[in-house]
Design a binder for these strands. Sequence first.
DNA 1: CATGGGATTGACT
DNA 2: GTCAATCCCATGC
Length: 195
Amino acid sequence: MSATYSAEVCAVARALIGAVVRHGETAGVIVETEAYHESEPACHAHTGRTPRTLTLFGLPGRAYVYRSYGVHAMLNAVAEPEGVGAGVLIRALEPCDGVELMQARRGRERLEELCSGPGKLTQALGIVLAHNGCDLSDGPVTISPRAGRGPEIVASRRIGITRAVDLPWRFSVRNSRFVSRGGVALDRSLSRVAR
DNA sequence: CATGGGATTGACT
DNA sequence: GTCAATCCCATGC
């Protein structure tokens, strides 16, 4: 089975907490991620290779960017060896560089409203569909690994999906005020899932 | 080729 | 709490 691979993409999702996403002069620290793997039906790669999911099956460390609800760009990091469809969705950042530009792009002032959601952070950083397939160690969009041990991480259920809803594959910094959707429901889903 | 459905957000009742 | 926006693409005829 693919349990080994699933564990791997989740390990990457955890490891990316505390890493820095950068595009141009804007950057933020990752505080929330979700893991997706071809073995479970919530993952775009579950139906196999298609034009849309091709990058998910490609080299790890590349960006998989797709359009959600016809409106928002979503940023993922491909997270398994070539040939295995899996990625980590970047769901929220703590803004660190280029805050004024992010505020202008978002039309909001409060730091908590700049990157507290997968569609918000791509808008704040100016990440678009054309970045699909770019090398995240090279740019123009980059993710720099964190040094050291990192913050305390909470696992919970993924958000906004209709299938495989019970997998506890969402990871976030405990008590961070920069995550998407408040922390109360998060704690409840955790107790129900991870018991 | 037509259709239906989103890994969301923000505005509004 | 409800709901529209908006477009890419997977699916089926």
